[in-house]
Design a protein around this nucleic acid. Structure first.
Lengths: 196, 196
DNA sequence: CATGGACTGGACTGTCCAGTCCAGTCCAGT
DNA sequence: ACTGGACTGGACTGGACAGTCCAGTCCATG
């Protein structure tokens, strides 16, 4: 093989990921090949069709969407860390671009969209729910459905600002930390342990 | 004019709206004309370009996105009515289709996207915030930033299920009313008046 | 040095589409 | 009965793009 360790194939997938994120499925095969620094025919040596390449690019995206959750410290501290990480991931230009493309193409690539959802947002919420369940058990949070609670927290963290950005409005960059704190405190009020 | 009261022009806009919602901007001019029962040239007699037609279709969509909020009864009842109306609008197949198309095309039609956002989600939240502010004044809700509170409530109402549906997962149709009630009650816990 | 596999790049096909042009039809109001 | 404006429908241009074909290059290995 006359090419460097950075596989031609993975360069192609990477280029496809970037191109699809930027331009949606409209991104042309020629441009993707150019972006990867490769002849168009080479692309077709690795992927039979544009669809196949798209699927592969989505698979790459899937590996980049899980948001971590590290315990340690009290509940509020843990949730604050999670909040910052979640918002950073979801509201980043890349996160939004991937979201945009996948939402647009979900009808044409239902399998990709579902895979992304399950291994991204759904998995993240599941982890969060597990943590919340433990905190409920420990009496640090009101005893309730942890899955539902996780859904509420992630919704409050992302929804408004995601919409704003998706529709092209200014990010309100100031006060990211403050925003996290307000949301987490709102959540903690709703899920404070019942008094006696 | 040889045509019926239902203006050729409005038939075209209606057809464009439906086509763009269904297929995104990919929807072809020919198909839109056919859907309106009209020759392609007639379409071009009314709109100079496809872009112009798209803008017009979005303008139509804008008039369909405001969610009503009727006071009357206590706070919980009012919010429950709002919750049901909001979810019905936002999670309907049409609401989701419009969302999908606009999110996808926002980079190409920033003006349309912003207009939609301002007169849709933003306006709805503004109304809700006004109501919440009054309830806070009346001591029925904890005194706090009403705009932020409105953002939290709308986020909790829509985010999770919108994502689920956008990514092609089953709607969990059962228990719509119950879902509304759970969210509203969660909100009311977070915004209960501070005890003394 | 020879061979084979990966890559190159340009030409080509078929398809779809936006937008233009035009000759003709149909009908409402005068 | 005539006229003008709206609509029709089919032909056409030019461009973009997915996918195919192929003759040739480059290089690592044997």
């Amino acid at each position: 093989m006359p090419t460097e360790p950075a596989d031609t194939r993975s360069r192609l997938v990477e280029a496809a990921f970037a191109a699809f994120a930027q331009s949606g499925y409209r991104a042309s095969v020629s441009r993707i090949a150019a972006r990867a620094g490769v002849a168009r025919q080479t692309l077709y040596n690795h992927f039979p069709t544009k669809e196949a390449l798209f699927s592969e690019a989505v698979a790459l995206a899937v590996h980049r969407v899980l948001v971590s959750l590290e315990g340690g410290g009290d509940v509020r501290e843990t949730l604050l860390r999670f909040a910052a990480a979640y918002r950073a991931r979801v509201l980043s230009p890349q996160g939004l671009a991937v979201f945009r493309t996948l939402v647009a193409e979900a009808p044409r690539f239902p399998h990709c969209a579902q895979q992304f959802f399950r291994e991204g947002p759904a998995a993240t919420r599941k982890r969060l729910a597990t943590y919340l369940a433990a905190a409920m058990q420990a009496g640090e949070l009101r005893s309730d459905d942890p899955q539902f609670a996780a859904e509420m927290l992630t919704a409050m963290l992302a929804d408004t600002d995601r919409l704003r950005r998706l529709f092209g409005l200014a990010p309100k960059r100031a006060g990211e930390a403050r925003r996290c704190a307000r949301v987490v405190d709102c959540f903690l009020r709703a899920y404070a342990p019942e008094r006696n």
